[in-house]
């Protein structure tokens, strides 16, 4: 299925979860938060929430700022 992750197109096997995607991306899951289709997806749901065709995700972390 086709997803959009941080503004870029990405392919993922059907049925995969948010946790699977974060694993593929190789991010430190403790350092990120995920928004799915403009709604926050709490960490506790990452392993249970299966992604769907066309889902748009934002994977964010902390950076320096004022």
């Amino acid at each position: 299925m086709r997803l959009e992750v941080n503004g870029e197109a990405r392919e993922l096997e059907t049925g995969k979860t948010v946790a699977d995607l974060l694993g593929d991306l190789g991010v430190n899951t403790n350092h990120v938060a995920v928004e799915l289709n403009r709604e926050l997806l709490p960490r506790a749901q990452h392993t249970s929430h299966a992604l769907s065709e066309g889902d748009r995700l934002e994977v964010v972390t902390l950076v320096g700022g004022g």
């Binding site: 941080n6 870029e8 350092h31 938060a33 902390l62």
Partner: peptide
């Protein structure tokens, strides 16, 4: 701190 997209 600021919140920004993770650089994938």
């Amino acid at each position: 701190v600021a919140i920004r997209r993770e650089r994938l």
